[in-house]
Design a protein around this nucleic acid. Sequence first.
DNA 1: CTAATAGTGTCTCTAAGACAGTATTCA
DNA 2: TGAATACTGTCTTAGAGACACTATTAG
Lengths: 302, 302
Amino acid sequence: MTENPLRDQNGLTEPEFLQIYDASQYERPSVTVDMLIFTVTNKEQNNYRKLPEKALQLLLIKRGEHPYLGQWALPGGFVSMRESLDEAARRELHSETNIDNVYMEQLFAWGESNRDPRTRVISCSYMALADRTSMDVRAGDDAADAAWWEVAYSIIQEKRTMTEQGCDLERLVTMELRHGEEVLSATVRVTESMNGSVTQVRREIIEADGIAFDHAKMIEYAIERLRNKIEYTDIAFHLMPPLFTLSELQQVYEVILGKELLAAAFRRKIADVVAETNESTKDAGHRPSKLYRYKPRWERTW
Amino acid sequence: MTENPLRDQNGLTEPEFLQIYDASQYERPSVTVDMLIFTVTNKEQNNYRKLPEKALQLLLIKRGEHPYLGQWALPGGFVSMRESLDEAARRELHSETNIDNVYMEQLFAWGESNRDPRTRVISCSYMALADRTSMDVRAGDDAADAAWWEVAYSIIQEKRTMTEQGCDLERLVTMELRHGEEVLSATVRVTESMNGSVTQVRREIIEADGIAFDHAKMIEYAIERLRNKIEYTDIAFHLMPPLFTLSELQQVYEVILGKELLAAAFRRKIADVVAETNESTKDAGHRPSKLYRYKPRWERTW
DNA sequence: CTAATAGTGTCTCTAAGACAGTATTCA
DNA sequence: TGAATACTGTCTTAGAGACACTATTAG
């Protein structure tokens, strides 16, 4: 910033002003980051001929302290004065998963004034995506109680209500998280209200069983974003190992979108985003398939 | 939140814990909201037969205090302890433009640790869109020095650099803001670096003339978002008056996208998002055109 | 009549949905 | 051989780009 020679109403120049600026005069909220770390894994499979099903997984940490003691929460923590939001997010990510070089993006800043029973906390959520094999430094090494939860996301109701000047669109989303025998669940109501020219989206937790804070909202939001973004970006490849078959890739799309895709159309669509390799699978009780790798934008023709 | 009977390592229940929780033990950043309020207006036009050109406008406030005294900044302010982020944003919006019922969405939380020379400030930016006529309660009533600036946005360079494991995509964006004779300008470098599986986007201000803080980045980001979102949502209609011609609507799309569109294709594309009215324009030195209105989703067939 | 905008018709090309059909492996 | 996945060919439909063409007004 260039030196500003102007003087304010107190006759101070900018350096003088900054010299005596007292930052402690106002009460301030705490700021945290919360990480949504997603992977995809194979489910167990009994029939040796069938392909294993894929499942979306999310990392949660069991709370060892109040509030929400004993419940499960997103990994996260307070942002310190000397680090940026991104840095705080990477620090959290690293401390929970021991990995660093993964895709990460900021999602949303959650600012309801009563989000946290302790004090006013504003939380910025980030989503990270990684191939599960790259994280076999399994979460739980340092965090005593970290676990991967298999996520099932389903829209169980859609409702449209007319109001005086517009309409409300309401969606009930139920999520079930499984880890072994344990099950967590939550239902979130997403309301888009349109009133004249005002459009507002609101999320409320209808029911949450075992999920701390307002984290069920964050999970719902992140999955919605992921579903959206997988359609128009290459984000899905961050969930894949270096080599994969097209069927596996398709399964990942299917598990995130929550619907089946037609193989022919899928292959056409991703054709110029993948590159064939010489290798192929050999294991299973059926025709082997070629292994592909991601073809980054810079290898494609402009 | 339901009562939690568990006791933590100090033997406290959750209510007991909250009772003695001391929120003041950590140093905390300040949090602000910054508003990007956009409208579209007609430029002056000498030839009575020609249609007036449209221009995108942004509201800025002249800083009356350090830091950046005398420069122009986005309207915004500190988030108080008792209001949510959204509430803070609406409050700011209302206090600057005297309007309330307009479209608003959260954009991004800016968290570099040295963004503000006074102290650590995290800022959450919001974008608001409104029809200019609804805001003829012109900004400046209470804010001494508020003004609408005509925004020109242009990508002046695109560069691709190969690195060891990936590539960097760099974009130089120049923005010029005009208000009467005054001109503000800024150049922002947007770098998308892809390294292995890590993708990161970084924005740096190369040059800023008269624009305070890192607000040039926020403006660049908002316009990029607007450009993107106008393609797949109905967001543009928030910038239109209740009745408009299709040519006007097309102009708004053109001014935001920064390129010309073909009328035939444009009309096809928006055909089921607008509804014809009985009225039409009568003024100009050429064929009059029908006036349309926005047809909200709930009037369309599902 | 002219300059301007308003609005339509139609050819082409591309991408996606649908689905039938062929190919290849392992036990 | 049969059960499974891997992969291809092609018909159809929807939408966008391109562009030529017609329509209508004020002056």
